[in-house]
Simulated scan of single mutants.
Amino acid sequence: MKRRSLPVAAALAATAALLLTACGSGDDSSKDNDKIAGADTSETGTSASPSASAGADAIDRPKMTFPSDFTMVFDRTEPAEPKEAAALNDAENFVRAINYGVVQQDAEDAAYKFYSDPRGTAQAYAKKQIQQYIDGGWTVTGTQSYTRGKVDMASGGERASVSFCDDDSKFYGKEVKSGKVLKTEPSDKDYYFFEIVMTTSKDAEGLWTAEAVQVQKEATQCKA
Rank of each mutant, 00 (worst) to 15 (best):
T143E: 14
I134S: 03
T46H: 10
E108F: 10
V95C: 05
Y146E: 01
T147K: 11
Q131W: 15
P67R: 01
G156M: 02
G120Q: 05
E78R: 09
E81H: 00
A85K: 11
G136Q: 15
E158S: 11
Q132R: 14
A91S: 11
P79F: 01
G45S: 10
Y100L: 07
V102H: 09
A86N: 00
I134G: 06
N93D: 02
E158D: 13
I130K: 05
G149Y: 03
F164E: 00
A124G: 13
A154C: 04
G156L: 04
G55V: 02
E43D: 07
A97W: 01
A54I: 07
M64A: 06
M153K: 10
K128L: 10
Y112A: 00
E108T: 15
S68F: 01
V73W: 08
A85R: 07
M153E: 04
S53K: 05
K113F: 14
R61Q: 15
S49L: 11
G136W: 10
Y100E: 05
T147W: 04
T46K: 08
F94Y: 13
E78F: 06
S68C: 00
T141D: 13
D90L: 02
T46F: 15
D117R: 07
M153P: 04
Q123W: 03
A126Q: 05
V103P: 00
D90M: 00
F74H: 14
T71N: 12
L88S: 04
A80M: 01
V95A: 03
K128D: 14
A52V: 11
Y115A: 04
Y115K: 02
I130Y: 13
T71P: 08
T147G: 02
D57Y: 04
G149L: 10
P67D: 05
A52N: 05
K128Y: 06
A52T: 05
G149S: 09
F114K: 02
S51M: 07
G45F: 14
P82L: 04
Y125M: 11
Q105D: 08
G157A: 12
T77F: 10
D152K: 07
S163I: 02
I130E: 15
N93L: 07
V140N: 14
